[in-house]
Amino acid sequence: MLVHGCKKDVVPDIPIEVYDPTPYILESPNGFPDLIIPEDNPMTVEGIELGRQLFYDPILSADNTQSCGSCHNPAFSFTDNGNRFSEGIDKIKGTRNSMPVMNIGWMTSLFWDGRSPSMEDQALEPVTNPIEMHQSWHEASIKLNGHPNYPDMFFDAFGIREIDSSLVAKAIAQFERTLISSDSKWDRYLRGEATLTQSESRGYEIFFTEKGDCFHCHSTILYTDNLFHNNGLDSIFTDIGLADFTKNPLDVGKFKTPSLRNITLTGPYMHDGRFNTLEEVIEFYSHDLVWSPTIDPLMKKVGQGGVNLTEQEKMNLLAFIKTLTDTTFTNNPDYSDPFNNESF
Rank of each mutant, 00 (worst) to 15 (best):
Y285D: 00
G203K: 02
D156W: 01
S28N: 12
D156M: 09
L289F: 00
E311T: 10
W137L: 12
Q66P: 06
E283G: 04
G69F: 07
S199R: 06
M43N: 08
F329E: 01
E49C: 10
F275A: 02
T266I: 10
F284K: 11
G82I: 11
G253C: 02
I14K: 13
I263P: 00
L309V: 12
K247L: 11
D296V: 09
T65S: 10
S77V: 03
L265F: 07
K91Q: 10
P38G: 05
N308E: 14
S201I: 09
S118M: 08
T197A: 04
S165D: 14
T330N: 02
D183Q: 14
F284P: 00
I172P: 00
Y19V: 11
P268V: 06
E200A: 08
W137Y: 14
H271V: 02
F111M: 08
I92R: 12
D34V: 13
P74N: 01
T224V: 05
D57F: 04
G159C: 07
T328Y: 13
V290K: 11
Y19I: 09
K322I: 02
H216K: 15
F339N: 09
T44P: 06
E162N: 13
I160E: 13
W112V: 04
G105K: 05
T178S: 08
D213C: 12
